[in-house]
Each structure stands twice: as structure tokens, then as C-alpha cells.
């Protein structure tokens, strides 16, 4: 046994550079957020912030735009997560059951993963254009004229339009993860179930679902975090407009930051960090309990 002797050879120098860099630009800022959120730091006095107690949080909760941003972020996260999980799972099952050109389809839906969301947002702003945009042109072509809307300037539809674009962008990655999960289910289980006379639905509930719960949990967390953090999609498509109707958390912080209210933005950021971390750890914990050994 060399283990004791070799362990000297794993010098702490291996991990130190990464540790320092990560501490300096990730951990320390996150910790100092707890201090900064209670200051009146602004662009007027960039290097001399003073404490102002709970003032920033009081201001946040009194701000109607903040309320809209929170509501929109929850709406966006709920709609996109539900849709991506349900339809992503369905499409992964379709692809896993021997559709011709399976790999081509997977490649096509996965491709937007490598594009910048801001650039995609500009393409969609053309697609959603009210008079000539292909979306409305198509709706009129199939006789659904009443559904052709001012997608981005009508308060009623703008959030929905952003959700649709986001689903278009990232459902591919969700499908890829589900597909890997599905492929890892041992084929014998299905064969045994067939012998026992189980139907398709029973197989899904008793074999597929329990054995893919791990990819389900990863996907749910990815969707939740991704949804809550949404920025580029909204920034490019509507930039929070019309009249702050599509403001989400990310664009709200950027707007406050751009107007120089650093302490106020830090307070909003701190709330976000605390809530997202709690939700993520809770989701992880819940799914961990649903996992099965096999």
C-alpha cells in the first residue's frame, strides 16, 4: 500500500490557483452581496458607499416595476419549464422509438444551443413583425386571421411570444438529456414487462418514469434556473417593454444598474441569489428522494 506515501504527491498547489480565482471572482462577490445590498452605493459616489439599512428592500417591495418583474419571471419560468419538460420528454420518447432520421431531427432541434440568445431574439423580432412577419403571414394563410397579433407590442401577448422563442431555443438540449436517460434504461425490463402482459402506459409508469427520474430532475433544475435567470432573450426581443410589461428579473437588475443605483440592484441580486439557491437545493433534495436503485 502506497496510499499514505503517495498522498504527499498530491500537492495543494494543484488546486490553489483555481481556488483563489474562484474565491476572488465568485465566492467573495457573492458574500459581499450581503453587505452591499444594505448600502446606498450609486454611480454618483462610485467608491464611497454608506449603509442605509433595509431601505433598498423597502424600495424594492414598494416598486410596481419590481412586482411586474417578479410576476413575469415566475410566469416565464413556469410556462417554459412545464412546456419543455412535457413536450421535451414526449419528443425524446418519439425519437427513441425508431423514427427515421432520428439523428437528423436531434441535431436540428439541438442546434440553437450554440447560438447567442440575443442574435436569435433579433431573428424572432422579424418573425413576429405584425404586418409582414412570417408568423402572422402563416396565420393569415391558414385562415386564422384573428390570431395574427402585434406580438411584441401588445401587453397581452408579449410575454407569451418571449416564452415561445425560449422554448424554441432550448427544448433541444432538454430532449438530448432525456434521450440519454431513456437509452440508459435496460431493454430487458421492457421485454420482461411484455411477457408479464404490461401495456404501453403501464410500462411508461412503472419502468420508464422511475428509471429516468434522474434526467427528469436534472432537466427540471436546468429549466427552473435557466428560466429564472433569463436575460438575453428578453433584452433582445422587447427590452422589458412595452412600458415595463415584459420586465423580468434579469432586465430589471440591468435597468437599475444602468441608471446607477448599484446598492438597490445589489439588493435585488441578493434576493435572487437566496431564492434561487433555496429553490434549487430543495428541488434537488425532492428528486433525490424519488430516485430508485437498479
Amino acid at each position: 500500500m502506497l496510499s499514505k506515501g503517495t498522498s504527499k504527491h498530491y500537492s495543494v498547489l494543484f488546486v490553489l490557483p483555481a481556488f483563489i480565482l474562484f474565491s476572488l471572482f465568485f465566492i467573495l462577490p457573492n458574500l459581499s452581496g450581503f453587505v452591499m445590498a444594505f448600502t446606498d452605493w450609486s454611480s454618483y459616489y462610485p467608491l464611497s458607499p454608506g449603509f442605509n439599512g433595509w431601505r433598498n428592500f423597502q424600495d424594492l417591495f414598494a416598486s410596481p416595476v419590481f412586482a411586474t418583474a417578479v410576476r413575469n419571471t415566475i410566469y416565464f419560468t413556469a410556462v417554459t419549464t412545464a412546456f419543455k419538460i412535457v413536450f421535451g420528454f414526449l419528443m425524446a420518447i418519439i425519437l427513441n422509438n425508431g423514427v427515421k432520421f432520428k439523428n437528423t431531427y436531434r441535431t436540428i432541434v439541438f442546434a440553437p444551443f450554440v447560438f447567442n440568445p440575443l442574435v436569435i431574439a433579433y431573428v424572432f423580432s422579424a418573425l413576429y413583425q405584425p404586418d409582414y412577419g412570417p408568423v402572422n403571414t402563416f396565420l393569415r394563410f391558414v385562415g386564422l386571421d384573428f390570431m395574427a397579433q402585434h406580438w411584441l407590442t401588445d401587453v397581452k401577448y408579449a410575454m407569451l411570444a418571449i416564452c415561445v422563442m425560449d422554448i424554441w431555443i432550448s427544448i433541444g438540449a432538454i430532449i438530448v438529456i432525456f434521450l440519454t436517460g431513456l437509452q440508459s434504461v435496460p431493454q430487458e425490463f421492457y421485454e420482461a414487462a411484455t411477457v408479464d402482459g404490461a401495456g404501453g402506459f403501464q410500462k411508461f409508469v412503472h419502468i420508464t418514469l422511475p428509471l429516468t427520474i434522474y434526467s427528469l430532475s436534472i432537466n427540471t433544475i436546468l429549466c427552473l434556473i435557466g428560466g429564472a435567470k433569463v436575460f438575453g432573450q428578453v433584452y433582445g426581443l422587447t427590452n422589458g417593454g412595452p412600458a415595463d410589461a415584459t420586465q423580468v428579473y434579469g432586465t430589471f437588475i440591468f435597468k437599475s444598474f444602468s441608471s446607477g443605483l448599484f446598492g438597490y440592484s445589489a439588493a435585488a441580486g441578493l434576493l435572487f441569489t437566496v431564492v434561487i439557491s433555496l429553490v434549487s437545493f430543495l428541488t434537488l433534495y425532492l428528486f433525490r428522494r424519488l430516485e430508485v436503485e437498479y
Binding site: Y10, A18, F26, N30, S32, M36, S277
Partner: peptide, 30 residues
């Protein structure tokens, strides 16, 4: 490779970065 307390702590330290969002405004200050 190492199973010391520091190693275990540091693993968690880095993994936390997968879940906790980045603190943009304090980073701006830094």
C-alpha cells in the same frame, strides 16, 4: 485523489458554483 477535509470542503465549494447564481453587482465593485 485526496480525501482530506480540505479536499471535501473545496469540492463542495466549487459545486456550489453550479447552482448559486453569479453576484453581478458586487463583482462589478470588485
Amino acid at each position: 485523489r485526496k480525501s482530506s477535509g480540505f479536499s471535501k470542503f473545496t469540492t463542495l465549494y466549487f459545486v456550489s458554483g453550479l447552482i448559486i447564481p453569479t453576484a453581478i453587482i458586487p463583482t462589478y465593485f470588485a
